[in-house]
């Protein structure tokens, strides 16, 4: 339970980064997003990203000394995460600023840089946990899942807001289905690698699957998957209501998955 701030931080930050990339990409490709919509979405992403930072402070014994966390960037992935994620939030604010000022070129450039920085932040995040001391974490699946959270939640979040604004012009369901299929495969990979891993990893798998949370998480995932599959063919289903519902389901699913990720982290 004491890792709850980290659960919230990682999910929200990955959501924010995924959303950001989506927005930046759409904006560059289609140029159909209105200024006010872009501003709303980019601001909401800044708010989400900011909340993530604030929540993460709760995990620290000394929240007011958090600034020191960048000191060891030369070796510590946590330092790197803090630095890059901090930079990302800063850049996303700048990005929102250029929405406000409506300067597409700058927006595109800043967005591009922020995208790279954000990806490095997620990469660093994942690397923090890929440590031999915790066998269940020490695998590339950690990297996959962290990026997948971003890809599952980000586009859906942005698509949802665009749908609300009536500006949704591309197929969100397609992207999401693709990410969900990948996620399902990674999940299978994850459990099979746990099962064949060290005793602590085996135990983590047992703890995960023997808890009702796992079934809620699976259930929400499957329902979301089903609805999205139907919506691919059925344009009428690509509305704000459906996307909100699916987003909520997947957010729950990802949140619970991350919660279990931390809770079942058996030490060597």
């Amino acid at each position: 339970m004491h890792d709850l701030p980290l659960v919230i931080f990682t999910v929200l930050s990955q959501l924010a980064i995924g959303g950001f990339v989506t927005l930046w990409w759409f904006d560059r490709k289609n140029k159909t997003i209105t200024r006010s919509t872009g501003l709303i979405i980019s601001c909401s992403l800044v708010v989400l990203g900011g909340i993530a930072v604030l929540v993460s402070l709760f995990h620290l014994g000394q929240p007011f000394a958090a600034y020191r966390a960048i000191l060891n960037i030369r070796v510590s992935w946590l330092s790197r995460e803090v630095t890059f994620y901090g930079a990302f939030v800063g850049l996303s604010l700048l990005y929102a600023w250029f929405w406000l000022k409506d300067i597409p070129a700058r927006r595109s450039l800043i967005g591009g840089i922020a995208t790279i920085i954000g990806a490095i932040a997620i990469f660093s995040s994942a690397k923090i946990y890929m440590i031999p001391a915790i066998p269940a974490w020490n695998s590339v699946t950690t990297m996959f899942t962290f990026f997948l959270t971003s890809i599952i939640l980000g586009p859906l979040f942005v698509g949802l807001l665009l749908a609300i604004r009536g500006e949704l012009s591309m197929n969100i369901s397609g992207i999401s289905i693709f990410s969900l299929i990948t996620a399902a495969m990674v999940m299978i990979l994850y459990f099979s690698s746990l099962q064949s891993g060290l005793p602590q990893a085996v135990e983590a798998a047992r703890l995960t699957t023997h808890h009702f949370i796992f079934w809620i998480r699976l259930f929400t995932f499957v329902i979301a998957f089903a609805i999205l599959s139907l919506s691919i063919k059925n344009k009428a289903m690509c509305n704000a209501k459906i996307y909100s519902f699916v987003f909520v389901l997947l957010f729950i699913s990802e949140f619970l998955a991350r919660f279990q990720f931390y809770e079942t982290a058996n030490h060597l």
């Binding site: 995990h59 014994g61 000394q62 000394a65 510590s76 923090i128 031999p132 001391a133 915790i134 060597l268």
Partner: peptide, 20 residues
Amino acid sequence: DLCIGCQMCGKACPYSVPMF
């Protein structure tokens, strides 16, 4: 004096040595 209490060292140590 430097420590900010993030507890990451405790996670990373294979022997769970650092304690909060």
